[in-house]
């Protein structure tokens, strides 16, 4: 894999993770209220916009990434986002990592490594 492909892969991981966490922070804010007021509150705070900005950039990064390697490989390598987001959720939001979750994350990570090693 070329350095550009690796850089795009890493950028995709960072943007997806920051985006998901920003949406979680926006949606989980207890001061936000309900209904329309909740959306107004979220729109006047940075988290929602950070999430949207990350997703727009990620969209473009993903197009560039997939154009440089076979689709089958790209989609499999992209699965690592699941693992990184769960680790970040544990770190920032204290989400529990049960044994079954750890096994699942491990299997996904090994699978991505096998695909990457064969690329």
């Amino acid at each position: 894999m070329s350095p550009l492909v690796v850089a795009l892969w890493l950028a995709n991981i960072v943007l997806d993770t920051v985006g998901q966490l920003a949406f979680k922070a926006a949606a989980g804010d207890r001061h936000a209220g309900d209904g329309l007021a909740r959306w107004k509150y979220m729109a006047s705070h940075p988290w929602l916009w950070l999430g949207i900005a990350c997703y727009v950039l990620e969209f473009l990064v993903w197009v560039a990434f997939l154009s440089l390697l076979p689709l089958s490989e790209g989609v499999l390598l992209g699965s690592i986002n699941i693992v990184v987001i769960m680790l970040a959720g544990r770190w920032l939001f204290g989400e529990r990592l049960t044994r079954l979750r750890l096994i699942g994350m491990f299997l996904v990570a090994v699978g991505v490594a096998v695909v990457g090693a064969g690329a």
Binding site: E73, L76, V114
Partner: peptide, 19 residues
């Protein structure tokens, strides 16, 4: 490598779904 990787990833996703 793609097939083995895909099988492992799918097994992982199933575990995460069960969790």
């Amino acid at each position: 490598s793609r097939i083995i990787g895909a099988v492992l990833i799918v097994a992982g996703i199933v575990c995460l779904g069960l969790a």
